[in-house]
Design a protein around this nucleic acid. Sequence first.
DNA 1: GAGTGGTCTAGACCACTGT
DNA 2: CAGTGGTCTAGACCACTCC
Lengths: 270, 270
Amino acid sequence: MSHADPRPLYQQLAAVLRDQIRAGELAPGARLPTEAVLSQTYDASRNTVRDAIDVLRREGLVESRQGRGAWVRQSRLAVVRKLPERYRWEKERARNDEGVRATTGATEHDTGLKVDDLVFTSTYDSSGATDELAELFGVPAGTQLLRRSYTTRYRDERAPLGVSQSYLVYAAVAGNPDLLDANNEPWPGGTLHQLSTVGIEVDHIVDEVSARPPSAEEMTALGLPEGTPVIATRKTSFDIHGRVVEVSDIVQAGDRAKIRFTSQLNRWET
Amino acid sequence: MSHADPRPLYQQLAAVLRDQIRAGELAPGARLPTEAVLSQTYDASRNTVRDAIDVLRREGLVESRQGRGAWVRQSRLAVVRKLPERYRWEKERARNDEGVRATTGATEHDTGLKVDDLVFTSTYDSSGATDELAELFGVPAGTQLLRRSYTTRYRDERAPLGVSQSYLVYAAVAGNPDLLDANNEPWPGGTLHQLSTVGIEVDHIVDEVSARPPSAEEMTALGLPEGTPVIATRKTSFDIHGRVVEVSDIVQAGDRAKIRFTSQLNRWET
DNA sequence: GAGTGGTCTAGACCACTGT
DNA sequence: CAGTGGTCTAGACCACTCC
């Protein structure tokens, strides 16, 4: 590489490879030269070559697999959450005929995929409210909550698209014992219909979206390649009296999730 | 470290430090032991210690500064974009008295900060529409577009909070020459008022949000610490005739931006 | 100048993948 | 088995910060 270039060697090498990828010389899916070859080609130690490839991995451009090699990453299919359309559709559907509800799910609405392509798993348990959740729900800390944990994944893949945990005040939903049993999932009509069975109508939902690096646990749980961030959404549902009735924390692989918000504006008076 | 543990040494060491951070033994802002000390303490080579710290850097838990040391990261102040409230407020404000408009800006609405705390810079130029933009605007590829580039930063900080590029069809806004000059920024009343001066009323805005690792360029431009993702938003504004009138690409540091979207639902009939 | 993290080397062995 | 990337070492020098 160049001695005039003030950047360290591994960054120069990363830039060379990055340029080749951007130019299409190394197309998505193409295999990179082996570390040994790069080491010889650019007269750098193998560790330096590895540092360069690390840079590209963290940028999400390259993925390597032990014993096999390194490849230019393909962009993956993303699931789009469309708000507020999705929630409006869910609420409408919660009041529809039961047969219709059973055949089609909320995630299908987002992805256009058939129900058969996706696998849900759910587990239920209960826990005392943390200070944070207690304040949101307006109940004393330690109040019993129903916690529902979900994962969604493509049938043909090991790693889930996302994991979520949903919290409800136990006493508020205990009026319908069916809601306390994970075996009733997936519930036809979804959460908005579940809540309607105990007399709760949701008025508005607030989604707070942020991006961050995955924790070590999330990285393995979601099967994230090095450098992929997660999109974390805190979803809070309010009933028609302004009370918080559900809180969900949703974590999705950043490269597989998009969120599309539509803001409808009022017309100016003419 | 332990020989029974199947994880590699650097991951074990990362886990030890991570646990100390989570437990608060290493509080936010606290300095980590030096690499030399860690190397001796855990009987690992300095490179292995560095690998462990790398893991924590990528998780956003640790930040190191050359010649000084490594610290547990403090969470930074985040800017919250509140939708659709912000757009509704902008549109309302676009029709208000000029004096009111000058004193308060859209970002202040989001952050609660005073105008003085934030610095905007803007540059204007024009470019031919790419295929992608041409299709969005419904014009032939190559049609002249006005491109406006913005950065926002805190007055006391070097690195910007975010950068954005906004595209308008040149011919559509040329009716008001003031709109073609960056010296008129910040425009009182914002973009929605700018558009109103050439007879355009915006009907709805679509924000498509995704998270990804920063490119090398974005990392330096935004001064991102290792491991921080960016939130990329494609904002598309439609006028009351359904035409696309503005397209913006907004890139924000992931640890400094949140988006809060409220979905208002229709009431069920009783 | 002493101490810190950043870069780089040469070489070793391991874990996993393919033939 | 050979070839690949993953881990680890010991040591060197550099760039930067602080005293």
